[in-house]
């Protein structure tokens, strides 16, 4: 509803109230009690109908605003696809970060006792060696120490290998950051778009502008990690499928 139309609708009852008030004054001056009472009632009912008109106007505005929501292509798409999709993506972020945290903790928990044992064995060995250099060791004790040194050196080799493996696992567990970062960035874009859309609706309340359709031209572009791989036959489920596809292309 335009402003001019709204003013015209209000103009008429104002005129009626003015003429009612004028005749009220005249009748009051003339001491016409019955007519005065009637006129006061008439004025009150005018007030009521103005209120009903306001409520009617608000109802129409609300209706128009709701119609814009329905007409803008983006809103049904947002509500039906992109918001549920964002929820799914954020759940995937939780999954990935949790998985990485467990992988890191597992590796650390496996590595810690190894490091502790290395420290302890090293310390014992140093004490043995000090005893030996002080010439406080008899032949039998020396034979036992030699044996311990041999096993220690062997264990150092395997322990170091295990620690190396654990540290590599910790490093590889950090790969979640890349994938989750991409997903969160996409969700931020979606939230930004929703915000822009809502601002447009607020600005356009009362006018029903239809947004231009986005160009649907098919363009192969980066989409980020695929979250729901099972439901999409076009998505490769892993390196093996990628390799199969590439070898079918002559790679």
């Amino acid at each position: 509803m335009s402003t001019e139309a709204a003013v015209a609708e209000i103009q008429e009852p104002t005129d009626i109230r003015l003429s009612l008030a004028q005749s009220l004054v005249t009748n009051l001056e003339q001491g016409n009690t019955a007519a005065v009472e009637q006129l006061i009632n008439d004025l009150a009912s005018q007030q009521e109908s103005a209120l009903f008109q306001e409520v009617g106007k608000l109802t129409r505005q609300l209706h128009d605003s709701l119609a814009i929501f329905g007409m803008d292509d983006r809103f049904p798409d947002l509500a039906e696809n992109r918001i549920p999709n964002a929820k799914e993506r954020l759940n995937y972020v939780i999954e990935k970060t949790e998985e990485s945290a467990h992988r890191t903790l597992n590796a650390v928990e496996e590595a810690l006792p190894i490091a502790h044992e290395l420290e302890e064995n090293g310390s014992n060995m140093r004490q043995d060696w000090a005893k030996f250099t002080r010439r406080e060791m008899n032949a039998e004790e020396f034979r036992q120490m030699s044996k311990r040194i041999e096993t220690f050196l062997e264990s150092v080799e395997t322990d170091a290998k295990q620690l190396n493996q654990g540290l590599s696992d910790v490093m590889m567990a950090q790969d979640f950051q890349d994938i989750t970062g991409q997903i969160i960035r996409q969700v931020i874009e979606l939230v930004q778009e929703m915000q822009d859309g809502l601002v447009t609706v607020i600005r356009n309340t009362g006018s029903s502008s239809k947004s231009s359709n986005e160009d649907n031209k098919k363009n192969i572009t980066a989409e980020g990690p695929q979250v729901n791989q099972e439901d999409n036959p076009d998505v490769m489920s892993g390196q093996d499928e990628v390799d199969d596809l590439l070898s079918s292309l002559g790679f």
Partner: peptide
């Protein structure tokens, strides 16, 4: 992380050596 069939084909056609 791009794992769609059409994307891999696109990369292959563009001359990628490995994916």
């Amino acid at each position: 992380a791009e794992s769609k069939k059409e994307q891999i084909i696109e990369a292959a056609q563009a001359g990628v050596n490995g994916y």
